[in-house]
Deep mutational scan, measured.
Amino acid sequence: GTEDLKEEAKKALKKGDKERAKRALKKAGLSEDQIKKFIKEVL
């Protein structure tokens, strides 16, 4: 589900894998702006 994808994105970001995080967030249905915001909040 969406929460799982967001968790996956957080883990990817902590490993420095932004591309993987972006893919997971796109799958979760987030827009580009939401993805940028999510990444900023996590990092």
Rank of each mutant, 00 (worst) to 15 (best):
I35N: 00
Q34V: 03
K6N: 04
E19F: 07
S31V: 03
S31E: 05
K36A: 14
Q34P: 00
E32N: 09
K10Y: 12
E32M: 08
E8Q: 10
R23A: 14
E41V: 06
A24W: 11
G29W: 01
L43I: 08
A12K: 02
V42K: 04
A28C: 05
A24H: 06
K6A: 06
I35F: 02
K27T: 07
L30P: 00
K37F: 08
Q34D: 13
L30W: 11
E19A: 11
V42M: 10
F38I: 05
K10A: 08
K15R: 13
E32P: 11
K26S: 09
A9F: 04
S31I: 02
R20G: 15
K6M: 15
K18M: 15
T2F: 14
A12R: 03
Q34R: 03
L13W: 07
E32F: 07
L30D: 00
E19P: 06
L5R: 03
L43N: 05
E32Q: 07
A24N: 05
G29T: 01
R23M: 10
K14I: 13
R23K: 10
V42W: 15
E19G: 07
F38G: 00
K14D: 06
A21S: 02
K11Y: 08
G1I: 13
K6P: 03
K14L: 15
E3I: 10
E7A: 10
E8H: 05
Q34A: 10
T2P: 12
K14W: 12
L5Q: 04
K40W: 15
R20N: 09
K18G: 08
L5I: 05
E41D: 12
K26Y: 09
I35S: 02
L13N: 00
A28M: 10
K37T: 11
A9Y: 03
K18R: 13
K15T: 12
L25Y: 01
R23G: 06
Q34L: 06
G29I: 00
D17L: 07
K37V: 11
E19N: 07
K11H: 10
K40S: 14
K15S: 14
K22I: 15
F38K: 01
Q34H: 04
D17M: 06
K11C: 11
K40D: 15
I35A: 04
G16R: 04
L43P: 03
L43S: 06
K15D: 14
E8A: 08
G1P: 10
A28V: 04
I39P: 01
E8L: 11
K10E: 06
S31H: 04
E3L: 10
R23C: 11
G1A: 13
K11D: 12
G16D: 04
A9V: 08
T2I: 14
A24M: 15
L5W: 14
R23N: 10
A9Q: 01
L43K: 05
G1K: 12
V42P: 02
A28S: 05
T2V: 14
K14H: 11
R20Y: 11
T2R: 10
G29V: 00
Q34G: 05
